[in-house]
Write a protein that binds this DNA or RNA. Structure first.
Lengths: 262, 262
DNA sequence: CAGGCATACTCGTATAGACGAGTGGGCAAG
DNA sequence: CTTGCCCACTCGTCTATACGAGTATGCCTG
């Protein structure tokens, strides 16, 4: 009689034409939405639900897989199925590249995370010259080879973002930009020092499900989309001087933009 | 001997510790990525894959469910499993609310879609007064009741966006804004005519998996996230005069912003 | 020729059972 | 008390089977 967890759930409606596994998923979803199961809390085990509803185990698993696809729950082998906690989100404001934010010695990511009380990390640093993809080449204005700077950002040990900056070789080669650590203010500060005064940025935003490799590098739970942001930096002469391709765990971000009403 | 479709696929590696259904999913994914199966094309049927790999049907279905979760394929009852075509995307530029775009008689959505050669529609029109949610009330500056304008946008018959505008009653009541069709230039033009000169907009962007009701109203395939955009319009006195809550099918949109380097 | 039906093929749903593997608690041996 | 093992419980993977329901095709009938 340890049926306390399942006592929060109702019965099936045999007359309904809604599939049984959907009905079960509906009940679990509603229970979660109503807070009957709280964040991080364990849901009834598959065996308990099998008994409660009188269905087979695969049916229950089918229900769970729906909720997983919705990003509501996640299963842990040997432990159970848990309500997925909403992680703290990182807000990216549209003025995050303003010059006034470029004065400190540390990177914007580190400063901001420290301020928010999180523990920031950057890893997977890689800086190398390579052939530009078709897309990058187009964005940079028909450039063949580029300097690529890759890095992964983590908050409290959790990967949240993976970014690659591409710069034309004639700009970046043999400059601090080609160093693993480009110095205070990041590569935008270096670009300006090198005489490429920045005029504006263009950001393209998409959202989609992650590729398997993105799931791996961002350690994404199932049911978590990614935000794909492609930023192009233009100097005052209208030349594209950098393209930054960023993939973010969507559950960790809110992007914020300010637009003039012109 | 109609095994042509499966001849594009390899064998399983029994020594691998990767689960069989993942191996099958991997092979199908790779075949799709390489263009062996083109957009809209039918994949081998479950039965064919069962025979090709010598596994049970549930294993094959498990593989398909992975690919569905990734948004790569979609199943059609009685027909087969197909490579999901990438729909044409709608680009939203950050200057889309500039005054110069507000001069025509038709709504921005209609004009833009016509220009792109698509057939635009707007439906589910609903305009009513209601109690403001906690969030909306906060954004509008402690407003109790609001005018809510709901509408759904479709391109070539496919729903792509569902939006709700919330306006304080003291601004919108008994004005053209409370009419189903607010007239040329939309509600922003009306707001300015009413003396609320717009100063700037703030947009918050999130991406997540859709709720069941969003799946329904946007007719979303599985594996398609939504972009959730919340825009607040401010007048020159700094007052929030409108909040627009928009849910977009992520596979139908690219958002584009232009940021000054300040 | 047109319409309708039979049929084969598709995926959808559900059952029952088996074994594997990760986790954690309790018990027994040292 | 500590160590180590066993066991119970968890989810992961896979098989085999059954029936239902949507789709397309071709044949048969009128």
């Amino acid at each position: 009689m340890t049926s306390l967890p399942t006592s929060l759930l109702g019965d099936l409606d045999p007359t309904s034409d809604r599939a049984v596994f959907r009905q079960i998923a509906d009940q679990l979803r509603e229970a979660i939405d109503r807070g009957r199961f709280k964040e991080g809390e364990k849901l009834p085990s598959e065996a308990e639900l099998v008994e409660h509803y009188g269905v087979s185990r695969m049916t229950v698993r089918n229900s769970f897989s729906i909720l997983q696809g919705e990003g509501l729950v996640h299963a842990e082998h040997g432990k159970g199925v848990f309500v997925r906690p909403r992680p703290p989100v990182r807000r990216l404001a549209s003025d995050r590249f303003a010059r006034r934010h470029r004065e400190q010695g540390k990177s914007a990511f580190i400063v901001e995370a420290d301020a928010a009380g999180s523990h920031p990390q950057v890893d997977s640093l890689e800086v190398k010259e390579e052939k530009a993809s078709q897309d990058i080449s187009t964005r940079l204005g028909s450039v063949r080879r580029v300097l690529a700077r890759r890095r992964r950002y983590l908050l409290d040990g959790r990967p949240v973002e993976f970014a690659t900056s591409y710069l034309p070789l004639d700009i970046a080669r043999d400059t601090p930009i080609a160093e693993p650590n480009p110095g205070p203010g990041g590569i935008y500060a270096r670009l300006e020092e090198l005489g490429h005064r920045l005029d504006h940025f263009e950001e393209e935003i998409r959202a989609r499900m992650p590729s398997p490799s993105e799931v791996k590098t961002l350690r994404l739970a199932s049911g978590v989309p990614v935000i794909h942001l492609i930023r192009t930096a233009y100097d005052t002469e209208g030349r594209a001087v950098e393209v930054c391709d960023t993939v973010m765990a969507a559950d960790a971000y809110v992007l914020s933009y300010q637009l003039p009403a012109t």
